[in-house]
């Protein structure tokens, strides 16, 4: 599957505690897949493991970005291979402005020593901030410092739009958002949908999927996908609740 994000038979743990248990999923480029599931089922662990977070240990399995294995690589190498993680709780980075931060991320993707086109960079940055209804003054704000929940998530989407990854994993991007912010963030993601990008949208609630309509919905339970379906599965889950998953699906 060269044009896909492929996760195969992934087992991963935090310390001694197994979290991902034989997890498999394929997200073809150009599609939006949603993972839904109750808290504690391993959704955020999946996101962190894919991004190469050092606190998680992979026991076995594969993850490939367009055929390139990414497990075991340093997080910066994974990112440059084309995987972007939008954080559930983005870190505050004192003293580093948004403009310098995104610039450093773009410079890291250039050939070493290549000139950086600052003029084009700012033109693009401002255009994307306008689309996300972010005040241009944000460029000189320190990354996420003193931001509201909504501002942090908008900042994540701004980075996503600037870095143009092959695959984006959105970890609970809807948490902490009011309805206006949710709409703006969703519009940003929808504007990026297209044949060049695949999305894995992790969410606890169905409401985000009203705005970012998925091609496929997967239900996660105890470290693995237990059920998959079309976008209507999210509605069904919303209606029946996670107890339904527990009774009907988890031990099927």
């Amino acid at each position: 599957m060269p044009d896909s994000l492929v996760i195969r038979n992934l087992h991963a743990s935090v310390g001694e505690r197994p979290i991902l248990k034989n997890f498999s999923l394929t997200v073809p480029k150009g599609e939006v897949h949603a993972i839904m599931g109750p808290n504690g089922t391993g959704k955020s662990t999946l996101a962190k493991v894919l991004a190469g977070h050092p606190d998680y240990v992979v026991q076995s399995g594969d993850a490939l970005v367009d055929g390139q294995p990414i497990l075991g690589l340093e997080p910066d190498v994974v990112a440059r291979a084309g995987l972007f993680l939008a954080f559930q709780y983005p870190s505050e980075i004192p003293g580093v402005t948004i403009a310098n931060f995104i610039r450093a991320a773009l410079v890291a993707r250039q050939a070493k020593g290549a000139p950086f086109d600052a003029k084009a960079y700012y033109a693009e940055l401002y255009a994307k901030m306008d689309a996300l209804k972010m005040d241009r003054k944000f460029t000189s704000r320190f990354v996420n410092e003193g931001f509201s929940g909504g501002e942090k998530k908008r900042c994540e989407i701004l980075q996503l739009m600037m870095l143009k990854p092959r695959y984006a994993v959105l970890d609970e991007t809807d948490s902490g958002l009011d309805i206006d912010a949710l709409r703006i963030v969703s519009e940003g993601v929808n504007a990026m949908r297209g044949p060049d990008t695949g999305f894995l949208v992790i969410t606890h609630y169905q409401r985000l999927l009203d705005h970012i309509v998925p091609d496929r919905v997967h239900i996660m339970w105890d470290g693995q996908i237990v059920h998959s379906g079309g976008k209507e599965l999210a509605l069904e889950l919303e209606e029946k609740g996670y107890d339904w998953v527990k009774k009907e699906l988890a031990h099927a």
């Binding site: 991004a51 190469g52 977070h53 050092p54 340093e74 997080p75 910066d76 994974v78 990112a79 440059r80 993680l85 954080f87 983005p90 870190s91 505050e92 980075i93 931060f101 995104i102 450093a104 991320a105 890291a108 993707r109 980075q159 870095l163």
Partner: peptide, 15 residues
């Protein structure tokens, strides 16, 4: 801070 560092690494910025 390891979390701050991971955030930057996750954007592709080398260590």
């Amino acid at each position: 801070s390891p979390e701050e560092l991971f955030y930057l690494l996750a954007r592709g910025i080398p260590l």
